[in-house]
Design a protein around this nucleic acid. Sequence first.
DNA 1: CTTGAGATGCCCT
DNA 2: GGGCATCTCAAGA
Length: 225
Amino acid sequence: MGKSARQRETGVTSSSSSRITLGTRLPESFYSQSTEQVARRLLGRCLFFKSDASQEEWVGGRIIETEAYWGDDPASHSSCGPTPRNSVMFGSPGRAYVYRIYGMYTMLNFVTESEGRGGAVLIRALEPLEGIPMMRERRRVARAPRELASGPGKLCQALGVEMRHNGESLLGRHFWVGEDDFKVRSISVSPRIGIQRARERELRFFLTGHEGISRAPENRQARLL
DNA sequence: CTTGAGATGCCCT
DNA sequence: GGGCATCTCAAGA
């Protein structure tokens, strides 16, 4: 996957005068890789989101924690085949699969694999970079920046991602996923959090030692990739 | 810092 | 009606 395969774009503007420095936006082909590859390669990349209101600012940051779910893995929503709920997972890669959990939290996933195969990467944590005041406003309980998006439910609350964004393209006007010159130093793996099935699989990935990853007992079972 | 319990209500396995 | 890829707070070390 060479540089030529990526779209070069600029011009994502934040609220005031500053410009978000983004070199390249990830193309659809990035997401059509295997789910595990996408989960690992998303680490260190940037995610920005803009809600429907046109005056809305871009908010977001660096992806620091992900989980992979695909195929007949019993922990994955795709395990029983397409249903009305999970149909986006089986559609074209590079879209947002959004669902609600525990009646109150929203989860953001990126659809992976080729069309027809069910797969998605759960975006579990961000290091906030842009729109921090707005994130803080949306998450009243959070005090420190590290608490704004240090978990999948918190992340969606901070960004303003809601159920109506299910199926939205990651190359559309709501999402920006791209890379800057950040270099990933070390990746750790652990079992996935909050699931009971297939707990032995190490499909959670995060930047080693980052203060913004979600706190979980699984952190003690983590090892370097 | 850690662990554990309860909240909470949408969406459909 | 049940399941649930979570969060927050309280309490202890």
